[in-house]
Amino acid sequence: MARTLINVKKTLTRGEAFEIRLLIAHPMESGQRRDSNGQVIARDIINRFSCTYNDMLVLEATLFPAISANPYLSFWAVATETGSIVMTWTDDHGTVQTERVEVTVSA
């Protein structure tokens, strides 16, 4: 399946609060489930997430196994300048993924 679905309004007015919404394809295997042979299925979750807007932090989060599979996140930033929103997350294997969205801001 696709890695991510990101929804952000691409053209903004300075000072406007805008929503950043994303879905990430990930099993978020909790480490608490057992397979049909009774073996614990190894934990495999996205444990860190961060979002910056023109290199300024919007938020960073620590995620636990209680976050549902295919994580959904929605949060808000303030439009300042035209530029990029960069989202980065890390899973239990240490794999880092980055997605970028460009936004245009008018006065």
Binding site: A17, F18, S30, T52, Y53, N54, M56, L57, V58, L59, E60, A61, T62, L63, F64, P65, A66, I67, S68, P71, Y72, L73, S74, F75, W76, A77, V78, T80
Partner: peptide, 22 residues
Amino acid sequence: EVLHVRFGPAAARPRIATRIRL
């Protein structure tokens, strides 16, 4: 623990939404 979030200077209204397991 479910979630910890730290907001930075570019954040707007302190609101987040997600989905959790109970």
